[in-house]
Design a protein around this nucleic acid. Structure first.
Lengths: 209, 209
DNA sequence: CAGGATATCTAAGCAGTGTCAAGATAAAGT
DNA sequence: ACTTTATCTTGACACTGCTTAGATATCCTG
């Protein structure tokens, strides 16, 4: 038989590097049709392998999704890390971090929703993902800590929770254009600045210390 | 044949009040296993009708879910309306509204997630749901308006967006115990008070007017 | 009260899904 | 060269949403 597929990069065996190929194809499908629109058979067909082939690399459909979440979290992490690099003042960094969070969500809506789905973000999430998530939280924690130099650990945690909840809420609502319906805007970045100004976020945090 | 099912209330035809029975059974399944764990066939089996029966009352599985969202939104609406009844000051009302929002979400996690899912909350959502959602928004808008008596329409809208995003973010994160992981708490209500205090929400809003 | 129109339900089946067991094929190791 | 192992295919099972054709009860009109 021998399918005439072009081998993507380093060819080690039978059909090519199936595991990575599956992840790549699945990521594309998720980006286009969302996690609920992904079927293992479609992924397999895309790469021109049998429907059962994926099961030699992933125990489950859930495991494949988990792999997508993993690379998604890395991408997310890079975006957040990049965002705090160019700002000098702590407040600016916090703002930039929030904007980057929301921008990532709106630019990768399906990926973001998968990453945040209960199966991978809840307390029953796989351990390797928890580690990646911890890295993301560190960025926020340190940024907040710089904004509140005299705060206690518990105050910092509360600050993180508040900042995270606000930004996460904006992200979730912005993805489905529900925020826009309430508060019409053209540029999401400036809209967020408005929101943050209105809520007096950084000022409010500092005032309570 | 004639199944010996007990007729729930007002029996008008063949098998009982199938439409309501379907919705009721579906609501229970969604509450237990989430929207993704619901199958029309399971619903049909629960009520002891054939697998095709639901299609005479709902064109789609999506339509059944839409009906669930409708009663869910009404329930949500009642909870929110109730919450603002017992507070006198505008700030207290806003706080109570936020707490009620989050409490509803954590007490009905699967229903809340269904209600907020893009299919029913996005811009492609059915019109009847939009109406119910408008009612919910009115409650927030009037509460915010009472907090910001001198604000312009656009300022009020921004205030709504900020309050909504914060509370929605808390709700979404609290459902999966992700907030608790960052900021451990026992009572969600007092935790929210902490958060709102920290962020200086109502104060910040008023200050900007 | 008959008898046709209508609403409601069932039976059977199609296409698609996740998943598994058994076998085929190729690569790696001895 | 021969065995072991990794990789992939075939074929199947149970389940899903949904459709078409027909059965059955209710309603409405004459």
């Amino acid at each position: 038989m021998m399918s005439g597929k072009a081998k993507s990069s380093t060819n080690t065996y039978h059909h090519g590097d199936l595991r990575s190929a599956l992840i790549d194809a699945a990521i594309k499908i998720v980006a286009k049709k969302g996690a609920s629109g992904l079927s293992l058979r479609a992924v397999a067909k895309e790469i021109d392998v049998s429907s059962a082939a994926p099961y030699h690399h992933f125990k489950d459909k859930q495991k494949l999704l988990g792999a997508i979440v993993e690379v998604g979290l890395e991408k997310f992490n890079r975006a957040l890390t990049r965002s705090v690099k160019d700002s000098s003042s702590p407040d600016d960094r916090l703002r930039a971090l929030g904007v980057a969070y929301v921008i990532f969500a709106t630019e990768n809506p399906n990926l973001f929703e998968l990453i945040q789905s209960p199966d991978f973000a809840g307390d029953s999430a796989p351990a390797n993902l928890a580690k990646e998530r911890e890295r993301n939280f560190r960025i926020l924690f340190e940024t907040i800590a710089a904004c509140m130099p005299n705060a206690s650990e518990s105050q910092l945690r509360t600050g993180c929770a508040a900042a995270w909840a606000l930004v996460h809420g904006i992200a979730v609502l912005a993805i489905d254009r529900r925020l826009n319906a309430v508060m019409p805007y053209e540029d999401l970045g400036s809209a967020m600045t408005n929101l943050i100004e209105q809520i007096g976020f950084t000022k409010a945090i500092r005032r309570d210390i």
